[in-house]
Design a protein around this nucleic acid. Structure first.
Length: 238
DNA sequence: AAGCGGCTCAACCGCTTTAGT
DNA sequence: AACTAAAGCGGTTGAGCCGCT
């Protein structure tokens, strides 16, 4: 990324930084920008989302005065501008969680991200592809050499798994749960904003409905994980 | 000090899914 | 039922960084 462009690593900006002049004409807005986001663009995007709430991304470019497509705006918000995003190195428990969830869910990065507060799907995906995948695969190789792997052929490959991203990791998941990750409802995100509370862990993914018939985990936020891992243990026994 | 190669991560692309009409 | 627009996702790319030689 460009060093001259806004990298945002310092993270902080205020509304005072918003420039007065905005590109508001159709001609200006028609020229879509690509590439790295500038500090000013981040400020405009943040101001827009704070004002109107998340959602209706197709309106964000015109509302914010940004020469970006709705996809770019959404992605930038979710991966960078959003205040709840956690940056820095992955902690040990986060890594452990990623490995387990990835083994269980496959490359459903958004679902995995939904279980790890503050982390984005892009972050996790990048982390996996650049580090964890190799690490897990290499440990898997060791397991195979030790004769620990007894993977069943019919369980080895999911259509959803990429060819090189460490499929069948850690002995390979027995099967990949493929819940419906979609949350197409237009209102919840806005209502969350109105309520003055954003929760990164629930904004864009739903609990796996198809396989998740268990009651809501009101008291213990990690109850779902315990259930998940218990089920994983059952699988291992078969 | 310079060159090189690998790594990181922000961003883009293409596709699928869903909602609305 | 068919079509369209919008949202969301995973895969991929590429610029910049960093460490090694």
């Amino acid at each position: 990324m460009g060093t001259e462009e806004h990298q945002g690593r310092s993270g902080e900006f205020t509304m005072e930084d918003v420039p007065n002049q905005l590109p508001t004409t159709g001609i200006e807005l028609a020229k879509l920008r690509k590439g790295s986001w500038t500090r000013e663009e981040d400020i405009l995007l943040k101001a827009c989302v704070e004002k109107y709430g998340e959602g209706q991304w197709h309106r964000v470019p015109s509302r914010a005065g940004l020469r970006r497509c709705r996809k770019s705006c959404r992605l930038r918000w979710l991966n960078y501008v959003k205040p709840t995003i956690k940056r820095g190195v992955f902690e040990e428990d986060e890594v452990d969680l990623i490995i387990r969830l990835r083994g269980l869910l496959g490359n459903r990065w958004s679902l995995i991200a939904g279980r790890i507060p503050g982390r984005t799907a892009n972050d996790i995906k990048n982390y996996w592809n650049s580090y964890l995948g190799k690490k897990v695969v290499s440990s898997d190789v060791i397991k195979v050499k030790l004769g620990a792997s007894s993977q069943k052929p019919h369980l080895q490959r999911s259509r959803h798994l990429s060819a090189d991203a460490g499929e069948g990791l850690s002995g390979g998941p027995p099967s990949v749960i493929k819940p419906r990750p979609r949350n197409m409802c237009k209102r919840p995100l806005l209502s969350q904003e109105i309520n003055g509370r954003r929760d990164v862990s629930c904004c864009h993914v739903q609990m796996p409905s198809a396989t998740d018939q268990r009651p809501a985990d009101e008291g213990d936020p990690w109850l779902w994980l315990r259930h998940l891992l218990e089920e994983e243990g059952e699988y291992d026994q078969h």
